[in-house]
Design a protein around this nucleic acid. Structure first.
Lengths: 338, 338
DNA sequence: AACCTTTGCGCAAAGCTTTGCGGAATTATC
DNA sequence: GATAATTCCGCAAAGCTTTGCGCAAAGGTT
């Protein structure tokens, strides 16, 4: 760090005025004469003065950093959401500090603690898969620390959230399968405690009902969102006495793992088994057959989360928590139409 | 923020001792009696005291945040490197603040300025594609601000860098094509000013030479690493009077764009055209045919960058810049063997 | 010419931490 | 019992910024 940055003190000494005068001049305070103001501002410009955010943070008890916690840094889903958050943050003079929970509840708590110790302005996060106990958010909520959940959420009555229309999307997928002639429609779901899992299962069941298809428990299997687990789930489905003719995967990892396993068993997509996933555009179009999928507006989710966050930061009183529900789009490609 | 955190002052008042005594007690200073030390530490524990990093930063002129600048947040390559950086940072009590240059030289400079104004401890970054002028790093270098470049680098005599064995990898690819029977081997290269482009072109030419193949200028085309540009480059190659029978793409985006375009023109991979890219594992195995590719140890690159950074931070004197060269691995799959 | 209002600037505190130095009280020494 | 040496703790400054308050000089008023 060294003596890189000049401070108000430097400016003041150079101009032979007091520090407070310099401070006021830089903020165009009317108490300071026009000519002195100009002289100060010119010198500040010349010496590349920038106020020390540490000092300001200390004084004002506020910070311009947003803590962001994701279960995983590497997948497209999260990195594009981060990208959205970063863009909003940047536009409003905020910086994002990223930590990864690696889907662990314990690590999530640790990340949270650490970021709070760092004195971030608040937290934007997606719950870890493992997290089932939501008590560690109580303090934050009570103390009105700005907090936004996205995708995997909890306590929505108390915390602002950004989600997609999971139920509706799952319903549409199911109906799309039906309309394409598929009748034994399976669903590889995520961990049972996650809101996204529950909502998508509900949509799946609702879709089945609307198509007058009975819900068959054996066609609903859970996985932990990892590739091996999704592969295993697919195997389980394909080993059923009466094989499903369509599979709807809960996310992109699941869908691709399923695709590989289906192919490995010598089955053809979409003829033998139809396949749909929640994915991002790039992946879905590069595989063969191209994958029908529900597009998450991930970048927009990130931006929306950022905006909800800023809303809380800027509010003098604590604003009522808001629920942003973004709409997904079912993009029909080769894998689900025969 | 509010009154969330207790300060030394609170502890001192509660115990009726001075702030400095509390400070010393917490750091086990021998001047403080054992019993008082214990009392202080117990209270601190109870009240969940954590020292304010803003105050410490102000006092010691140092920070525990690392500025990270990437050209793109979304691609696997960068997000997995970020993941590596984050893990090292975390292990050593540092936090990473991420900014995105969107491949723009101007934005890159802006990110750099902003992060320095935030008083980060230093910068880990990958150059934007557009960046051709490296003058804005001179200040940092002179003032010995910890700085590490990865992948796309400049001024390696002055700055620590993390790269892969680009030349060697490109040479291996070329020879692999030759050994698989390909003879008109084309290369879709990146922007000419990037070190990675230059090194891979050199490796490509060296490989050709070793196989007694003449270098044909028309088989070397540049793209800007975007999908449309890579598609266009592929088109250009395939439209040549004598079509190449093998294409080596400079990165994953390029390789996949090429794959799509080759297929679109009704050509078969690997029979009509062999294809190899620099990619990550997941993408490469999910496409059809599976893609032979050079695997970047991306996570390791991130970790290495983090370690080189910490080396600079912890050194009292400025350490000599170090060049970490990680080795890639050529993973042969279906797309390059007929 | 005496008083009042502006105008223009500085003092000092607060926010939190670390640390050199000084000082009071206790113990040891002669 | 007086002096020297410990032991244990507090004062204050530094790091940087903002802001309420006070104060001097200048100008205006009668």
């Amino acid at each position: 760090m060294s003596k890189r940055h000049v401070s108000l003190k430097t400016l003041a000494q150079t101009l032979n005025v007091s520090i407070s005068t310099v401070s006021r001049a830089l903020r165009n305070h009317p108490d300071i004469s026009a000519e002195l103001t100009q002289k100060v501002q010119e010198l500040a410009q010349e010496l590349d003065y920038s106020p020390n955010p540490l000092a300001i943070g200390l004084l004002k008890h506020q910070s311009n950093t947003i803590g962001v916690i994701v279960p995983d840094l590497v997948t497209y889903f999260f990195s594009s959401i981060i990208s959205g958050i970063e863009s909003v943050a940047n536009e409003h003079g905020y910086y994002i500090v990223i930590r990864c929970s690696y889907e662990s509840a314990e690590k999530e708590k640790e990340c949270l603690d650490n970021l709070l110790k760092l004195r971030v302005a608040g937290i934007i996060m997606c719950l870890a898969q493992e997290t089932q106990d939501y008590a560690h958010f109580s303090n934050l909520i009570e103390e009105q620390v700005p907090l936004v959940f996205f995708d995997r959420i909890c306590r929505p009555e108390e915390v602002s959230t950004v989600v997609v229309d999971n139920l509706e999307a799952a319903r549409r997928i199911t109906r799309h399968f039906f309309e394409s002639g598929y009748r034994r429609i399976a669903h590889i779901a995520g961990p049972a405690q996650l809101n996204i899992t529950q909502e998508r299962i509900q949509g799946y069941q609702q879709g089945l009902a609307e198509c007058d298809l009975a819900f068959d428990e054996s066609l609903l299997v859970h996985c932990d969102l990892s590739i091996p687990s999704a592969t295993e789930a697919t195997r389980q489905l394909l080993a059923l006495p009466v094989r499903p003719d369509a599979i709807f995967g809960v996310n992109d990892t699941t869908a691709f793992a399923a695709m590989k396993e289906i192919k490995r068993q010598g089955l053809r997509i979409p003829n033998d088994v139809g396949l749909v996933g929640f994915t991002d555009e790039f992946h879905a179009t590069v595989v063969e057959p191209t994958l029908t999928s529900v597009m998450h507006p991930t970048y927009e989710m990130g931006r929306e989360a950022g905006l909800l966050f800023l809303e809380q930061v800027n509010a003098q009183a604590a604003p009522a928590p808001r629920q942003a529900v973004l709409t997904t789009q079912l993009v029909i490609r080769e894998s689900s139409v025969r």
